[in-house]
Nucleic acid binder design. Structure first.
Lengths: 251, 251
DNA sequence: AAGTGGTCTAGACCACCAT
DNA sequence: TGGTGGTCTAGACCACTTA
């Protein structure tokens, strides 16, 4: 009934990469380029399919993968939306500290210090920066319930966060990731973490009200954007006497 | 060209759950029931679709999800296979300890002790057992390179592992998960882990050749089967001076 | 060459949401 | 009521593996 041969030929340039993957790339470029912004609704699937000149099934396969990756969000009857860093989403995807045997709660975050400097070799490696590139360093103290639970040491490239000052952070009622997104157009999509158990450094122990050299969970995290570009480097120390790190993996 | 209405009616019983989900359940039941065993090839997709009386697209959607969950494995041109606990797969999905900044290596595992007893309240909770149910406890010592790196304390329900004795474990050249699968028809599909930093218990410190009360990474893990049924409870203590826990999340 | 999964199409109908 | 995503179909052709 159909002459698929003609269609396939008319598909055009990309001969080796599948159409749905090319479509995914186009969507990703529209996202990182700001054509569709966090919170926006995408055009309806049939419109998008028509615009790209592909069938709705192929369009859906591309969107499916972006939904799986947490980049788009489908809502039946309403539309498809660009994921934004609202608190719930952040808590769900990027915050892994929970009370023992308990559920997730949103932490209180307090900016403890803000400094500028030049990248260490580790920082430049993690953030793909030139040696000695200028960086911004923040230290946050996180509280769950009453007690301080975690100290975050965060490094950002000054080049990617122009004009970011201490006031800009302290003034906000939002989270850091919301600030990256709203203020600099940078959306965190994925993180990669490595964990160790270490004796608390003296300054961390003080902030967490722990005995000197108490065991703490050290979390070293790179946060990545749409194109797996590193946006933030973070070293955290958590007190795990009343909380723990949650990991649901292996599927 | 088609009368979809008739088809939909002829779909039969399950009116609220989508066909592809019902199909997924049927496949899962065939897997846990041993109709298709680990390593086996499934029937070709068009044959399966015909057998279930559904279109190939719907069958593929069900299989897609099982592939995403690591339960089935597709190989173009060859077939679709039931995932088995070969070393590579275990390493990739279930073993999260890597050398600092390094890649994964397979550990040497040594059975250190084998005992029987009755479930603690925690063990019975984690394994969904009655209080004081009979359990088997193993302690393994894991070595990466030359140095001991991790101590695993494993608890199994005696009821689910009948006739499992020390010789049955020590004699094997395989991994524990391969033993669960080949010997008892139990396949691990997913794990859920919670991590803390704790001072090494005395016996663990000795085995890991660490100073008393050195910080260790404590990993508490439930391993689950096809129907999210708990199969194994494991508490590990890792020395993270030269290794770390790897977690790729947030997508 | 035969068999398998992988891609893609064109379109029908269902379920849900807003108005 | 009209629009959105969600499900499902029937079938063509492509890419890959094996013999």
């Amino acid at each position: 009934m159909t002459r698929v041969g003609e269609e396939v030929v008319s598909r055009g340039v990309n001969s080796d990469t599948p159409l749905y993957q090319a479509t995914k790339t186009r969507l990703l470029e529209s996202l990182s380029g700001g054509v569709y912004r966090p919170g926006d609704a995408l055009p309806a699937e049939k419109d998008l399919a028509a615009r790209y000149g592909i069938s709705i099934g192929t369009l859906r396969k591309a969107v499916d993968e972006l939904v799986d990756e947490g980049i788009l969000i489908r809502q039946q009857g309403r539309g498809t939306f660009v994921a934004s860093h609202d608190r719930e989403r952040l808590l769900y995807y990027f915050f892994h500290i929970v009370a023992h045997e308990g559920g997730k709660t949103y932490p209180r975050v307090e900016l403890h210090s803000f400094t500028r400097g030049r990248a260490s070799s580790e920082e430049s490696a993690k953030l793909h920066l030139a040696p000695d590139a200028p960086v911004i360093r923040l230290r946050n103290l996180l509280t769950l319930g009453e007690a301080p639970v975690m100290v975050d040491d965060i490094t950002l490239s000054s080049a990617r966060f122009p004009k970011l000052g201490e006031a800009g952070i302290r003034g906000r009622a939002s989270t850091l990731y919301q600030l990256y997104q709203a203020g600099f157009g940078l959306t965190i999509v994925r993180t990669s973490e490595r964990l160790r158990a270490v004796a608390a450094p003296a300054d961390v122990a003080t902030l967490l009200r722990l005995p000197r050299a108490a065991p703490t969970l050290m979390i070293r995290r790179v946060a990545l954007g749409y194109h797996d570009d590193p946006i933030e480097w973070r070293v955290s120390h958590a007190d795990t006497t009343a909380h723990e790190y949650f990991s649901e993996l292996g599927s």
